[in-house]
Design a protein around this nucleic acid. Structure first.
Length: 307
DNA sequence: CACTTGACCTGTCCGC
DNA sequence: TGCGGACAGGTCAAGT
């Protein structure tokens, strides 16, 4: 989410108000609309606000249509003015400084004032959806989405209530579920759990009230900080032709397997939780203590390991 | 229902 | 140098 928010801000500054003169889709499955519909929706229309919901971007147009853009893992948006980079956002392995369109360009928008907007994506996971104001609100992608992690709706009470449907699933899985709270991805789930001193594999229902309070706070702190530092974009975003700050050096866990925990010095370990690569500090994030004797267990069944 | 796994894709890296 | 396998920041469908 912080990467998407960074990109959103750059786009607000560089393409808001631009008129779309033409659009070319280089890989049809990228867009959910036929060519005539897409042309009718965008050609000659101006880009209004660029908003974000969870990890998706919403380009408002000057009529009741919107472009919903989800970049998933490797998506990238590049804006150039007369060939000069204006905004880069996205994945490092794709060449973002070479000629465009390139092998990974899925769509090209020709904008007014000599601006070009390219959406590139190596893995073909990214998608654009053409929606009306009505269908946007009802879009399945947003339908069950939880509150914005940094929005006013994400209170401790709401967090608790959203987590209530989970019992034995690892807390990390619950965090990654956008229905719990919108905007937490794999990197930030790990970071939040570290700050809150919770083991990623701890069964959700067994997280104590105090730990949950720490986690709620950690989510706000980590994401706010990551947004302030333009996210964990790997080689760094470029905006207005200059490299951005990046949150990468501030990460406690990401990319730091085997390196000392910034809090206690214990080497960071890597494992797999909820099917995702997971970094954690075995000292700061101990496996949850066994329930006090006599108290009924919350049904945790954890396979033992050396972690 | 809660939870896990596989699929979607391409590129990179690591071990043999 | 080549090759197979694991893995990569997300989400959804289908499975147990």
């Amino acid at each position: 989410m912080p990467e998407v928010e960074t990109l959103r801000r750059g786009l607000e500054a560089s393409v808001r108000g631009a008129r779309i003169e033409a659009v070319k889709v280089l890989w049809p499955p990228f867009v959910n609309a036929s060519r005539p519909l897409l042309d009718a929706v965008v050609a000659g229309h101006r880009i209004g606000a660029i908003r974000r919901r969870g990890k998706a971007l919403i380009f408002d147009l000057d009529h009741d249509w919107h472009l919903l853009v989800h970049l998933k893992m490797t998506g990238q948006v590049v804006v150039r003015r007369h060939g000069q980079p204006v905004v880069f956002g996205g994945h490092p392995t794709a060449n973002i400084v070479g000629p465009m369109p390139n092998t990974w360009t899925r769509a090209v928008f020709t904008l007014s004032a000599g601006r070009m907007l390219y959406i590139n994506d190596q893995r073909k996971f990214a998608r654009v959806r053409v929606v009306t104001t009505e269908t946007l609100a009802a879009d399945p992608f947003f339908l069950h989405m939880g509150p914005e992690a940094l929005g006013p709706g994400f209170t401790l009470a709401v967090f608790r209530q959203r987590l209530a449907r989970y019992r034995s699933a690892p807390i990390k899985a619950a965090l990654l579920d956008q229905a719990t709270v919108a905007g937490i991805g794999n990197i930030y789930a790990d970071e939040c759990l570290h700050l809150a001193r919770i083991h990623p594999r701890q069964p959700t229902a067994s997280v104590t009230a105090a730990a949950l309070r720490r986690l709620h706070r950690a989510i706000r702190v980590i994401l706010r900080d990551a947004v302030a530092h333009c996210g964990t974009s790997f080689p760094a975003f470029i905006r207005d032709g200059r490299h951005h700050d990046t949150w990468l050096d501030r990460a406690r866990l990401f990319g730091r397997e085997g390196q000392p925990c910034r809090v206690c010095g214990t080497p960071i370990e890597r494992t797999r939780v909820a099917g995702r690569g997971t970094n954690f500090c075995p000292h700061c994030q101990p496996v949850a203590a066994a329930p006090a004797p006599g108290r009924p267990s919350a049904g945790r069944r954890e396979r033992h390991s050396s972690e």
